[in-house]
Structures are given as C-alpha cells and as structure tokens.
Design a protein around this nucleic acid. Structure first.
Lengths: 336, 336
DNA sequence: GTGAAAGCGCTAACAT
DNA sequence: ATGTTAGCGCTTTCAC
C-alpha cells in the first residue's frame, strides 16, 4: 500500500503534526524541517489521503449528480459544462446515470448519502414517493438543474418552460403558421411536459387559433418517439405546416421520418425543436430550436450549489430563471 | 450533522459493535437487539459513512475515469456502458472530463490518487512525460479503454485498429473503389491515429493501388475537422469516389460539407466512418461505419479492471482485443 | 517552531 | 450473543 503521513514523519525524523503542517502550507516552519519533510514525501512518493481528510473535515468535495441519460445530447452537454465549473471550484463529480430507472435513481441517492457528498444535482424529473421523501429528509443541499424542483424547499436553475414554449409558438404564428403541431413530453413532468404544453396552448389561445387535436401528441423526449409521432402525422390526410417538438431529439426523429418518407423540410413542413443541444447543428437541414443557455445552466448550477454548501443560511426566493432564445436554422421557414 | 454509529448505539442502548454487526447483517444477533438497533437507525435517519468505511477497509469502491470529451458521441456512449456495468458491480464513477487539456488530465490523475480510487480507466490517448510517469508509478490498477496502453505494463481493452482499418479499406476496394480518400487522426496517437492509417495503407498496397496523396489528410477526430478536410477535397479538380474517415464525427463533418455544397452522397461520393457511435444512424444519409462493440467495450473494461482490483496477481498477455464489424448504411455504395 | 494526543466514524480482533 | 479496544490517516487543540 501507499505510504501514510506516519511513514513520512518517521522517514523525515519529525512528528506527524509537522508533516501535516507542511502539507497544508502553514507558516512558521523552519527551512530545514520543510526540506526534510519534502524529501521524505518525494522518496516515498507520498500523496495525502483524501479519505482521511474527508473524515476529519466532514467534507468530501464531491458532488453527486443524477443524470437521466448520458447518451442524450442535451444531458451530456450540460454535464460537460457542470464538470468544468465544478472542477474549477475544486469539486469532483460522482455521476449516476439512471437511464429512466427509478430504482437506480433511489439507489444512487442513497449512495450519495452514505458517500457524504457535499451536495447533489438532479437533472431528472420523474419522481416517486420514496424519492420525494428522500429529497424532503436529505441532510445535504440538493439543487435541480434544468428542471423544476418538486417542492419550493429546493432550488431550481432552469429556463421558464412555459414562457419559452409560448414564445416559440407565438413566433411561429407571427411567421404565418396556424396549423401548428405540438409534440410534447410526459404531462406528469411538471417541468417540460406540462409547462411547455401549456405555453403552446396559451399562445394559440391568445391568437385565437384552435389547435387541431390530431396535431397534438405526446412522446418521451427521445428520438424514436419523435419519429413515431411524425409518422402518425404524415398519415393524416391533412398536414400541419410546422411541428414544434418539445425536445431536439424528438425534432430530429421527426425530421428523419419526414426525410425518409421523401417529405421536404422545410418546404413542405417546418420543424422546430427545444433545448439547443449540439445535434441541431449536426443534422441537415439544421434544426431551428428554442435554446436553453446550456453553458450558463451548468455554471450557475454549480455556483448556487456551492453557495448552499458553504453557507447553510443561504436563502433564495423562487427559482433561478435563465433566458431562452429561439435560434433559427434551416428546418423552419415563414408561411405567407 | 447526520447521526453517527455512536449516536445509534446510545439511542439503542447497545455497543457500537452491535450496531456495526446489524449494519453488516452478521449472524448470531438476538431478535431484540436487532429490533432496538433498527428502531434507533430509523428514528435517527442514520446512514453509515462510506468515508469511514473506506478509511477502515482501505477500499473506496470508486473508479476514476478520464474521459477525453463528454460531448463526443462515442465517449458518452462508452461511458454510459461503463457506468452500467460498474454500477452493477458496486462501483461508483468519478468522472474527469479533460477536454483535450493535459494539465487537467494530470490534475485528475492526482486527484484520483489522493481519493484512493480502487482503479482508473483512461479513454484518452495523448500523453506527455509527466502523465506517463504517473502511469508508471501509480499504486492502483489502470486500464485503458478503447485505446492502446502506452506500455505493456498496463491492460488495454480495444479493437484491432490496424485490422479494422485494413478490413474497411479492403471492403471498399472489393466494392470497386480505387480512389479512396483517408481522413486520419493524429499520427502521434499510436492507437487510432497511426494504426488506422497503417491499416489503410496496407490494404491499398496489397491490392496494388497507390494512394493519391492529395486524398490523404489528417484532422483531430472531431466534426469540424472532417468538414474542413472535405472542403479541401471538393476543391480539387479530381475527386475520390469514397472518403474513409477515421472517426464517425469526422465522417459527419465530411457529409455535412458535401451536402452543404450540393454534392450528393453517396451518388457522387461515398463516405464511411469509424467507431459506430449513435450519430451514424441519426444523420441522413445514415453513415456506413466500421463499428467498435461499444457496449462490450464498456462491459469488458469494468470486468477486467475489477479483476485487477480484487486480484493483484492477475496477469494478462497482451491486450483484450474485441471484434470490429462494418455496418453498411446509406452513405456508401459500390462502384462498378 | 515543534510534538503529543484526542478524535472524525467505522470495523475487527479479542475478550467474556 | 454482546462489549471493549485499537487503529485506519489525517487535523487540531494544547503544551512546551
């Protein structure tokens, strides 16, 4: 096994206290002690045990993060941004990929608890009672990133889904569209599911357009579901002029379905997505999307979690709401 | 703060040892002791400290993983697979995203060392002397996943890059192609850079085709570089009939460049990639690719690392080589 | 300026 | 079947 502080002390012929002092760069250390200790550290290839330090300090510098699906572009982009800020602030990331599995989510939450992580970031939004109970009783700070916290006791860093969906829909209407299809997510998810849907409905209502119910469908945010819903749309005798998908992955699925069926996008039908993941610029035609500020989401999530960690008195009123932005690309065009 | 084992013991009116025994499900525990302890645990919402356990056991159940770039599709797919197997085996993942930054890689390696992770998985392949020295002296098991270990002292789980590139190139030749462009990675990388290039060269040689040097170019595996190289190709007065890119992301970049310039794929020029990341099926036309067994790569990586962790005597001769497979999709066709 | 000793939360001999 | 105690590697009073 590796050398311990004791070994270093012995080798240097000093006390462990002195070694500890050198390790922590304290002042008032004689030059010769410093040299002796450093030499011993070098010779033994010693590195201090973070485990022991954590035990003593009651702080691990680890942040646990619950990711819904690593292979999803939006997730990995945010995760990447979170990692960058976390690393810069001295935190390390314990990643739990839960792949839509509640048991696994619960398992990871308990692991985070026993690991005594300094804080938890949750990016998943489907909770059962046990998970909610965990959030309620957890002793450590929990922050919800890109999703709505299930209770006001916890902090959310996110965009205003309702408003963003409203703005996207209104933009389409102003561009001359009236037959606007909506591909939603799970309505159980207060966050993106319900609120994005409500934003769509409200924009339609304010402009006195009655949504064609054949055009309103719900998937699971993933690519295949977008493909499936689009397939249903294209079998109708009448088509919408644009499809507004509540996630970029669903938008890509819809796009692929159209292309594979020989339907031209955006000439015959426009498509716009939601999220602003990198995939929108990768496919052809590139996809218009209501973008979340991914980089900022990651950065702010860590910054606020850090606040909660270092300052237990830290209070907040309401969520941290970040701006959204419609980025127009090739997949949509105005209807005149 | 959370309750400790001592608090539980006091509350239950028993010794800490007894609590520990209950915690670890030992036999020979009286029913009443069990009940008392469990009640106390419940009442105090106690969860045992993994930190303390790790210190005592000299084992953390944490695996550190160096990921080159989380936003890269191939990486996140493997990571997802690794996570799944690791989680099933009781390991947790500390993820270091290094974004092509050697300083950060070194920093993470040192963190993993102080964290006393049980093992390290490296998915990055550009090392400087300090990093190599770390690998040399590290006290814990290190496994290289999807890349070639820098020395035979370490285990690699990977495909045979040389053979895979050879097979891909030969397949193209057998399909009637002779003007075959090659987009390589960094030749400094023994793994994919040099070996994939050598495989391409050897297949050409065996079929007595002299590669047109204007068609052989090198990028960095990322999407924009594929786009850039393709742009150079399309400005030539003569085109290759197919482009073999050493990564799927470069293949997508090449594809996008072609499509954006109005060049039809595969009618005018075929494109094939390497890796088998999900992106190949997302874009249109979908991309033919020499696929690595992503799921198996992740699984085997953890399985072998686990062997190295539990059994220090574990020996191996050479790398663990997994099979590759050419999957034909829309982006390529035979030339007759 | 340096050291001895207690203690963070847990497990594992070693008693009884 | 249960308790006492030492010790994992470190930091931090408290002494000198």
């Amino acid at each position: 096994m590796g050398a311990s502080i004791k070994d270093v002390a012995q080798r240097a012929g000093v006390s462990v206290t002195s070694v500890s002092r050198v390790l922590n760069g304290e002042k008032y250390i004689s030059k010769e002690l410093l040299e002796k200790v450093n030499r011993a550290i070098e010779e033994l290839n010693y590195s201090p045990s973070h485990i022991a330090r954590s035990l003593k300090a009651q702080k691990t510098n680890i942040i646990g993060i619950i990711v819904p699906d690593l292979t999803n572009h939006f997730c990995s982009t945010i995760l990447s941004s979170i990692e960058e800020t976390a690393s810069a602030k001295g935190y390390n990331l314990l990643v739990g990929n839960i792949a839509e599995n509640m048991e696994k989510e619960l398992k990871y939450l308990h692991i985070f608890q026993t690991m005594r992580v300094d804080g938890i970031i949750v990016m998943h939004q489907k909770f059962d009672e046990r998970i909610l109970a965990f959030f309620e009783n957890a002793a450590m700070p929990i922050l919800f990133s890109s999703i709505k916290a299930p209770s006001s006791a916890h902090l959310s860093v996110m965009v205003d889904d309702y408003q963003a969906a409203f703005d996207a829909t209104e933009h389409l209407i102003r561009s001359g569209h009236t037959k606007i299809a909506f591909f939603g997510g799970d309505l159980q998810d207060i966050t993106s599911g319900l609120n994005r849907y409500r934003g769509y409905l409200e924009a339609m209502k304010q402009h006195r357009i009655v949504p064609d119910e054949r055009f309103v469908k719900f998937g699971d945010y993933k690519l295949p579901s977008g493909r499936r819903l689009m397939d249903e749309i294209l079998q109708l005798d009448e088509w919408p002029t644009v499809v507004f998908a509540a996630s970029d992955d669903m938008a890509v699925g819809a796009l692929n379905c159209a292309l594979d069926r020989g339907v031209r996008v955006p000439e015959e039908i426009s498509i716009i997505g939601f999220d602003g993941s990198a995939i929108t610029e990768v496919v052809r035609p590139s996809i218009t999307s209501m973008e979340q500020p991914v980089e900022e989401l990651g950065r702010k999530s860590i910054e606020y979690l850090h606040q909660l960690i270092v300052n237990p008195e830290f209070t907040f009123d309401g969520d941290i709401v970040l701006g959204h932005r419609l980025v127009e690309r090739e997949s949509s065009r105005a209807r005149r």
